[in-house]
Amino acid sequence: MLSIKNLCVSIEGKEILTGINLEVRPGEVHAIMGPNGSGKSTLANVLAGREGYEITSGEITFEGEDLFELSPEERARKGIFLSFQYPVEIPGVPMVTFLKTSVNEHRKFKGEKPLTAGEFLKLMREKKQMVEMDTELTNRSVNEGFSGGEKKKNEIFQMALLEPRLSILDETDSGLDIDALKIVANGVNALKSPGRSTIVITHYQRLLDYIIPDHVHVLYKGKIVKSAGRELALELEEKGYEWIKQENGN
């Protein structure tokens, strides 16, 4: 589904990613862990097509297509979803307007008819239950006045609405208490299917107690320095990132 080969990325001349290789097959859950500043969020943003990153070399294909040829909205419509580390507030734009526009853009892309207001509200009710999203929140403007946890829930709620092929969860667990963490994880797990893949980016392993990864990668200084099964996450939890740093000469 997703294939990253030797990806090198700089921001304002500073190298952040220094040769990433990653294969994500349909149905797989990959966890990318690493200390702060290792380039995790950069990878997420580059996948989603955010501006301000210079791709110095390497390639990414998504379902056989060159990702760099696609605009951010095209990537989204083709099924790449990024759950933002810091979801953005858009004052005055009602959640319903935003979500309906988003869902209908995806439908248009697939050649489906746009949902009517009634159909959309029905879909929204259904998905709201999944992440225990408060109706009071969906009546507000996009993310406006949401707490940190509510914002993260809102991201998973949108993911449930859009049913993406590839979900990238960028530090979705940060700022969540244990109850919210469970709700978020349940949402993610409920969406799991053989055709859908997930990349979970996290600093801590606790989210991985609830979202069970098939593969765990450790990102350090812009490179994947270690890849293994789920047990790697537990090992990291136990030993911290120090041993990774030592093994890699720092």
């Binding site: 097509g49 605009s71 951010p72 909205e73 989204a76 953005v88 858009i90 988003s102 853009e105």
Partner: peptide
Amino acid sequence: EDQIFYCNQRGISTEDAIGMIVNGYAR
């Protein structure tokens, strides 16, 4: 730009995003 990118990431084109953000501002 982060507002526009957020919309883009949800499949909304930049022009539609600007329209939406500006209308929200003027609501």
